[in-house]
Write a protein that binds this DNA or RNA. Structure first.
Length: 781
DNA sequence: CAGTGAGCGAGCTTCCGCTTGACTT
């Protein structure tokens, strides 16, 4: 009989702990929750005090029976799931499902995985905290009520298979509102004046900027004119020490942000790479909201700093979590062995590890000390001053290791420059002054990482859900991650030099964006609808408010079903009322005007397959009259499309002309705009559209496609007409009975293959079960 | 991953948090 069974949440953790505890302890993992509300049903009994109906998901059945057998076989079962709401609930579900007994069950917690912490935990067991469990049940039930009562309303009023929830709907709201701010943004111009002065030595240049921006061109002109006759004198030199402190160690969200800025990883990429580092035992757990470092980690980090940089560079620091609703079940993300500077692994893994290691080291290092010098230049007859600032690093401190990035890298011009030696009352000679028209910047669109940061600030979502939430709002097509083309803008420059004042004009690109989150029509319509009726849930403070209630439940001050009841009494009537509203028109529908041809109204709305324009309505009384539909083009929006643009869409499919005696037709299909000619299809590239494409352009596309097709075909066999060897985007392949088979790069020359060769490859491929998308990575080292 | 090329009244969809699933030998 096994003496002790310990159950933790993660298998990697189980492995580590087993080493610490020795052979009297068997450590297994629950792989997270083992029981949840049924997936397909509401599973909350409203009539009976919101009793949840739990089930063990199919993919957990085997694991649960294994755990059950092992627990029956153990003298003592130690429930060691995380020390937070979810962790407590996991322990409780285990207790219930495994049929454990109080006298042979202990609940233990530790928030760092070190031998001392674990041994201490074993010595100080407690029992399951039902208040904390109930706080989790309240959280779970509330999320289910919101999600499963709101989503069906969207199916009826907007489009099937949509979803809404406490977290995702607010994430979409942030993006929609930011886009509106951008639309409404009016940039203001002002003139920024810079000058190059010659110092009394006759050669050294001092660059300075006017301490005020000038509102108009006239003002800038007048100022430069005044400068022509002015004298310039240094009237103040000030030196000020500046200290900079390192950033705290990584949590999930800050890791995601820095990896995005410094390494260009998406949020989910970062998490996948971090997961591998964790599984290899190289870093601590990657889903955490805690800044805490274990004493062991603090100690080894100190040693590493003393050894590599010396005493002067070390400073003990402890960081305290600031984010709302943080549960601090784990440590911050750090290397398990800080002394390990290099790891084996892919380039991505090495880079992320290096980032984590440097950040961890830097957070225990001394402040950087800088000296900021400000030189002020007086302009005779003017109240403005020219100002030059320079920054010199006196002591680099943590900067030697790590420099945190910022999101707006545009304002990099100032600072970091060494200024020339100057003296008070030095008279300067103006070499050149330039007034450049600058515009205020619109707010930035969210990236995945900045959205995560905003959600965390609002206390919405958890480290384990940031990446999945971003995936969900894109899967539902509420939001797309994409690029936006910029527009050209002209700006004026006034230059004053020996020759006097000249005016010139330049252009710059503005508003271009890459890889940013933008709302779709569906996202906007759903958001506006939810904002109109469900302010309650859409409120940025909703999560923070309910978190307070959950905390009260956890403290034993509130009954969880009472909290849910209070919410339901307000929420459910709105669901009822909203469902009862019978509207003539769909949510988000907009009438553009009247079709001059038929005299019928023209609408745009969200249709079964996304945004569409529609002329007329179905009318069963009138001969079963059917409306006409046309899909909106990419880049068009139901918010902004005009009647004229919409009517153009109905000209599709459109006959473009004739080529080789056959008609050329342009239309939009399931996969975007295309050209049809002689029974063949050619996709229309992004930079053209089916409404405006000319016959010449279409012919060119047809010819390109023919050339490609010719290149595509490699070989065919008479005996087996269904089999073809073709050239694809990813090299030669075999097409056979609707399936494609890759030809290995080595061992075959496609053009010389026999039918037997082909059949052999097909057989081999078919014998393997459905192809795995996962890439094996261990071999790459 | 490879080509595909409607139609808007028939078919089930959905939440948020925990955690990694593995075909054979």
């Amino acid at each position: 009989m096994q003496k002790n069974l310990v159950i933790v949440e993660s298998p990697a953790k189980a492995k580590t702990i087993e080493k610490f505890l020795g052979k009297d302890y068997k450590v297994l993992s629950s792989y997270g929750h083992i029981r949840d509300l049924k997936t397909k049903q509401f599973s909350i009994d409203i009539e009976h005090n919101y009793a949840p109906q739990y089930e063990i998901p199919a993919d957990k059945k085997k694991l649960v029976s294994e755990l059950k057998a092992e627990s029956k076989n153990a003298e003592m079962v130690w429930l060691a799931s995380d020390e937070d709401r979810e962790g407590e609930a996991i322990s409780w579900h285990l207790y219930e499902v495994l049929g454990l007994k109080p006298e042979t069950t202990r609940r233990i917690v530790f928030h760092e995985i070190t031998k001392t912490a674990i041994l201490h935990a074993i010595e100080t067991p407690r029992s399951i905290d039902m208040n904390l469990v109930n706080a989790q049940q309240a959280r779970r039930v509330l999320d289910r009520i919101v999600g499963f009562q709101l989503s069906p309303i969207l199916w009826r009023k907007v489009k099937p298979a949509l979803s809404a929830g406490r977290v995702q709907s607010v994430a979409v709201r942030l993006i929609v509102e930011r886009e509106r701010e951008i639309q409404d943004f009016v940039s203001e111009a002002a003139y920024r004046v810079t000058a190059n002065f010659i110092l009394p030595d006759g050669k050294t240049i001092l660059k300075a900027e006017l301490n005020r921006r000038l509102k108009t061109k006239e003002e800038a002109q007048a100022f430069l004119e005044a400068c022509q006759h002015a004298t310039f004198t240094i009237d103040d030199i000030s030196k000020k020490p500046v200290r900079k402190s390192p950033a705290p160690p990584f949590t999930t969200s800050t890791l995601q942000q820095e990896a995005a800025r410094k390494l260009g990883y998406s949020v989910s990429q970062t998490m996948m790479i971090a997961q591998r580092l964790y599984e290899s035992g190289l870093i601590t757990y990657m889903r955490t909201d805690s800044f805490n470092l274990s004493d062991l980690a603090l100690g080894t980090t100190k040693e590493a700093i003393l050894e590599s940089y010396g005493e002067k560079y070390y400073k003990f620091r402890q960081y305290h979590t600031k984010s709302k609703g943080a549960q601090e079940a784990h440590e911050a993300i750090r290397p398990t062995y800080i002394a390990k500077a290099e790891i084996d692994g892919t380039a991505q893994e090495r880079k992320l590890y290096d980032l984590i290691r440097k950040r961890t080291i830097a957070c225990q290092m001394a402040d950087a000390e800088l000296e900021r010098t400000t030189i002020s230049v007086d302009i005779s007859g003017q109240k403005e001053k020219f100002v030059a600032t320079g920054e010199v690093v006196v002591f680099d401190g943590f900067l030697q290791v790590y420099h945190e990035s910022t999101d707006d890298d545009q304002e990099k011009e100032q600072g970091n420059t060494l200024l020339p030696a100057v003296h008070l009352q030095d008279a300067l000679q103006l070499k050149e002054a330039t007034a450049t028209e600058r515009f205020t910047q619109r707010p930035p669109r969210y990236t995945e990482a900045t959205l995560v940061r905003r959600l965390e600030e609002l206390g919405i979502g958890r480290p384990s859900t940031y990446a999945p939430t971003i995936q969900t709002i894109q899967n539902r097509e509420y939001v797309v991650k994409g690029d936006k083309e910029g527009t050209e803008r002209a700006f004026t420059i006034l230059t004053l030099n020996k020759k006097g004042i000249q005016e010139s004009s330049k252009t710059e690109m503005v508003g271009a964006d890459r890889n940013k989150l933008m709302p779709t029509d569906i996202g906007i319509v759903v958001n506006d609808f939810l904002m109109e009726y469900f302010q309650l849930v859409m409120d940025y403070n909703f999560t923070a408010k309910v978190e307070k209630e959950f905390d009260a439940i956890a403290e034993g001050e509130e009954n969880w079903t009472k909290v849910i009841d209070n919410f339901y009494k307000v929420f459910h009537p709105i669901v009822e009322q909203t469902s009862a509203i019978r509207t003539e028109h769909k949510v988000g529908e907009r009438q553009l005007g009247i079709d001059p041809k038929s005299g019928k109204p023209v609408f745009v709305k969200i249709g079964r397959f996304g945004p569409v324009a529609q002329i007329g309505e179905s009318n069963p009384d009138k001969d079963n009259e059917k409306p006409q539909f046309a899909t909106l083009l990419k880049g068009q929006s139901i918010e902004t499309i005009t009647l004229e643009e919409a009517l153009k869409l109905f000209e599709l499919p459109r006959t473009v002309g004739e080529y080789e005696g056959k008609v050329v037709v342009a239309a939009i299909g399931r996969f975007g705009p295309f050209i049809r000619h002689d029974g063949k299809f050619v996709s229309i590239p992004k930079d053209k559209n089916p409404i405006s494409i000319t016959l010449d352009e279409a012919i060119e596309l047809i010819q390109q496609k023919r050339a490609k097709d010719e290149n595509r075909f490699i070989k065919k066999f008479e005996e087996e007409p269904e089999l073809e060897i073709l050239n694809g985007r990813y090299g030669p392949y075999i097409a056979y009975k609707g399936k494609n088979y890759r030809i290995p790069k080595t061992g075959y020359t496609p053009a010389e293959m026999t039918l037997d060769d082909c059949m052999k490859l097909i057989k081999e491929a078919d014998q393997k079960p459905a192809t795995k998308k996962r890439v094996t990575r261990k071999k790459a080292e």
